[in-house]
Amino acid sequence: MKILVCISHVPDTTSKINFKDNDTQFDTNGVQFIINPNDEFGLTRAMWFKEQQSATVDVITVGDVSVEPTLRKALAIGADKAFRVDMNPKDGFEVAKQLATIAQEEAYDLIIAGRESIDYNGGMVPGMLAELIGANFVNNCIKLTVEDNQISAEREIDGGKEILSTSFPLVIGGQKGLVEESDLRIPNMRGIMMARQKPLEVKEAIQTEVKTTTNKFEKPAPKGAITMVDKDNLDELIKLLHNEAKVI
């Protein structure tokens, strides 16, 4: 089984978000970058396929040279090989186009991406990629097993889950559930040393059309003051929610 894990390089979840140049650009100053949490679950599931079912695992990020530490971390966790497509993507469509090119060259059976990236939250890349290369697609994937080419996947739906039978080539939009939080791995020294020797291939980007551009950002308006209610006066809370907030 040949697996590709798509890794999005995103600000750490604790980051405060700021913009610069007149709110036209995200300010990366002082921001720590991490593997997108949804992708980390996917990568960890890929490691299971590698260890238990002899899969090969490549990782890929579309981005400039600043994403390389994130790819090295994925290699340290255990991926065999990394690709970086050298460009600054403007939107999910551009990313999907780049990924599709490599996916077709390398003919992967399974492509694991995340349900969404926590930066631009497009929730676009995996589905677009699947459609571009004519693969099956399971979004919000919370379980994936492959036995003798019988593939069973579960996806989260509103209020429950659905079980699907599908086939390769397959793209998933993964999330927590693929593995548990406690299964996530912190790279150890040996892994980090080995990652330095592993191949990280830089690919030239293909030309694509630009479908969307985001060049103005805004932060939510600051919150008004809170109204405190005494714990022995809960009737007051109900009154406020009914008359003032009008939500009950």
């Binding site: 600000p11 405060k16 978000i17 913009f19 926590i118 930066d119 631009y120 939250n121 969307t212 551009t213 985001t214 060049n215 103005k216 950002f217 805004e218 932060k219 939510p220």
Partner: peptide
């Protein structure tokens, strides 16, 4: 964008 930490104007 940024999980509700901000808004983006997208063309």
């Amino acid at each position: 964008v940024f999980t509700n930490k901000a808004y983006g104007m997208t063309e």
